[in-house]
Design a protein around this nucleic acid. Structure first.
Lengths: 221, 221
DNA sequence: GACCAAATGAACTAGATGGTACAATTAACA
DNA sequence: TGTTAATTGTACCATCTAGTTCATTTGGTC
């Protein structure tokens, strides 16, 4: 990936003579930082630990990101921008209403299941009352469009007599998200309390089908 | 509540001559600790801060709970035991299937909405991979019976031709919990990203109705 | 009222942690 | 080739933090 990350592996120390690679260093830091924040949260993550696992030094973290919170915010912003990219790639408008909703629910479920890192970071951010989302210009400029996409497909469905009227698009989104989010976010406690492993392929597949089915039943006229 | 907590308010220091009150001190510590862990998580909470807000001293925290994790575990155990108590108070078996499910979904939704502290602690514990739930004997002995209650009501519903067969009780539980948990756990980020305040009474009421309705539609034959 | 275990107070500490000072090296460009 | 801003390395520090030491007081028991 990044030049810096692939350069000196064994020692962890750069040679006396090195080559500049701002972007590489930045990426390398972000990658490691994400893992740390995902695993330990904002308060639990250690700057020294991040620095140690990096191909560069603690000095550079502060050079590029200012402080620990700045680094955390950068990680958060990157993650949300990534989602935004996936979201844009979905073309619900070209599908019939029921298929559009099925696709959206399935995609949302899969994205959460395949990206527990995302789920964990959102949990961490919520523990902190989304204070960093609130103060990030990059995220404010993002304009997540999930709700608009849902509204469009839903209204087509209502017009076609497939969906019952009177449902708020935000409620559709919340239902989809809740079902996708919960069994990733709470996988550990569910396993402890009920002895049920949500990570197992069969459990996951059944849950996926249930999520889609639940959504469609909620929408149907 | 506790004698210790109500004794010397202004100064925070006990008089030269004090009276022993083990249970009061214990309760006082647990109450303050819960607030701190709920607000800042396990890593973010500060033992000194907890001690300062207590009517007693840091010394007593370590005397009664061993270490920070011991205190956290005690808070967690108390919370789960409280849930268990509420759970037992529900008498689904004496209600018709549909009413039983409606009651359970409504109760679960309300409990989460009214106890964001509970939701936040569960989030914190999941960030830590439920490691403390796993090592707690008190919680292992709890035998949460939600699943059994659901199975009983569900099977009666199927027998009466009201519910469709083939649904796993755990899936019913997961659907109920997900819908109740998500809009409390993710309230902050939802508000930032979508500008939608889940705490507002109307939003909450609509969401409550949607949760119950969604569950019943999922179950109906 | 002497004795002892339980309960409590006050001060202290070793190590961790976020952050910095200072200096050196590199790369772009006149 | 000399100048300069952007990058990077090394060593360091002030403060915070979990946990402890040592001594004292209380309340029950014989």
């Amino acid at each position: 990936m990044s030049k810096a990350a692939s350069a000196p592996k064994g020692t962890g120390r750069k040679p006396a003579s090195w080559t500049q690679d701002p972007e590489g260093v930045r990426r390398n830091i972000l990658t490691v930082a994400k893992e740390e924040f995902v695993e330990n949260g904002l308060s639990g993550a250690r700057v020294d630990e991040i620095a140690a696992r990096t191909a560069t030094s603690k000095r550079m973290i502060y050079y590029y990101f200012g402080d620990k919170e700045g680094l955390y915010r950068a990680v958060l912003e990157e993650m949300y921008e990534r989602i935004r990219g996936f979201e844009r790639s979905l073309d619900l408008a070209s599908l019939p209403p029921v298929e559009a909703m099925t696709l959206l629910a399935g995609f949302t479920f899969d994205y959460h299941a395949e990206n527990p890192d995302f789920v964990r970071l959102v949990m961490v951010e919520n523990i902190h009352h989304a204070r960093h989302l609130a103060t990030s210009d990059r995220i404010a400029a993002l304009n997540l469009s999930a709700i608009d996409m849902i509204r469009e497909a839903y209204e087509r469905g209502v017009a076609a007599g497939l969906f019952r009227p009177g449902i708020e698009p935000i409620d559709i989104h919340l239902t989809i998200s809740a079902l996708a989010f919960y069994n990733v976010s709470n996988r550990a406690s569910i396993r402890q309390v009920f002895g049920h492993d949500m990570g197992a392929p069969e459990a996951l597949a059944r849950r996926r089908a249930a999520a889609i089915d639940t959504l469609l039943r909620m929408l149907r006229a």
